[in-house]
Amino acid sequence: VTTYKLVINGKTLKGETTTKAVDAETSEKAFKQYANDNGVDGVWTYDDATKTFTVTEMV
């Protein structure tokens, strides 16, 4: 189990959250659901070296 981080650069929501998951794909699903639940829709990137997802909304 690995800890993954999500950085949110939204128009109205900014911040970070973490989750523990067995792999990046599992954490990505959880993070995308979290973003969707909070009305964040944007461009996703992933940095495997830091286990960090970033979602950026276009303004």
Rank of each mutant, 00 (worst) to 15 (best):
V1L: 15
V1Q: 12
V1K: 10
T2I: 14
T2G: 08
T2K: 10
T2E: 11
T2H: 15
T3V: 14
T3A: 06
T3E: 14
T3F: 06
Y4W: 07
Y4F: 12
Y4E: 03
Y4H: 03
K5I: 12
K5A: 04
K5N: 05
K5R: 12
K5P: 03
L6W: 03
V7F: 07
V7G: 00
V7Y: 08
V7E: 04
V7I: 14
V7M: 07
V7N: 05
I8V: 08
I8G: 00
I8K: 00
I8C: 06
N9K: 11
N9T: 08
N9Y: 13
N9V: 14
N9Q: 10
N9H: 09
G10L: 15
G10R: 03
G10C: 14
G10W: 05
G10D: 03
G10A: 07
K11M: 13
K11W: 11
K11Q: 12
K11S: 11
T12A: 08
T12L: 12
L13Y: 14
L13Q: 10
L13P: 04
L13V: 12
L13T: 09
L13M: 13
K14N: 08
K14S: 10
G15N: 08
G15W: 15
G15Q: 12
G15A: 13
G15M: 15
E16R: 05
E16W: 13
E16A: 07
E16N: 08
E16P: 04
T17Q: 09
T17K: 11
T17M: 15
T17A: 12
T18A: 07
T18N: 06
T19N: 11
T19Y: 15
T19R: 07
T19A: 09
K20Y: 12
K20A: 11
K20V: 14
K20S: 12
K20C: 14
K20H: 12
A21H: 04
A21V: 03
A21Q: 08
A21C: 11
A21K: 03
A21S: 08
A21E: 05
A21D: 04
A21L: 03
V22K: 13
V22T: 12
V22E: 10
D23E: 03
D23T: 06
D23R: 04
A24D: 04
E25P: 08
E25G: 08
T26Q: 12
T26S: 12
T26D: 08
T26R: 05
T26E: 13
S27R: 01
S27G: 13
S27A: 15
E28M: 15
E28K: 11
E28D: 04
E28W: 15
E28F: 15
K29Q: 10
A30S: 09
A30N: 08
A30E: 11
F31Y: 02
F31N: 01
F31K: 00
F31R: 00
F31C: 03
K32R: 15
K32M: 08
K32P: 01
Q33N: 08
Q33L: 09
Q33W: 05
Y34E: 01
Y34V: 05
Y34P: 01
A35V: 10
A35S: 04
N36A: 15
N36K: 15
D37H: 08
D37N: 09
D37G: 05
D37I: 09
N38I: 15
G39C: 08
G39F: 06
G39Y: 05
V40W: 08
V40M: 06
V40S: 02
V40F: 10
V40D: 01
D41G: 08
D41L: 11
D41S: 13
D41F: 14
D41P: 03
G42C: 04
G42H: 01
G42E: 01
V43K: 08
V43T: 10
V43N: 07
W44P: 01
W44M: 03
W44D: 00
W44L: 02
W44N: 00
W44R: 00
W44C: 02
T45A: 09
T45S: 11
T45F: 08
T45P: 00
T45N: 07
Y46K: 01
Y46W: 03
Y46M: 01
Y46H: 00
D47I: 04
D47G: 01
D47Q: 04
D47C: 09
D47V: 04
D48C: 06
D48V: 09
D48W: 07
D48K: 07
A49I: 10
A49E: 12
A49W: 07
T50I: 06
T50K: 06
K51L: 09
K51G: 04
K51E: 03
K51H: 11
T52V: 06
T52Q: 04
T52A: 03
T52N: 01
T52G: 00
F53P: 00
T54Y: 12
T54L: 05
T54G: 02
T54N: 04
V55R: 00
V55Y: 03
V55Q: 00
T56A: 04
T56C: 06
T56G: 04
T56F: 07
E57N: 04
E57Y: 07
E57K: 03
M58V: 13
M58Q: 11
M58A: 12
M58H: 13
M58G: 11
M58I: 14
V59E: 14
V59P: 13
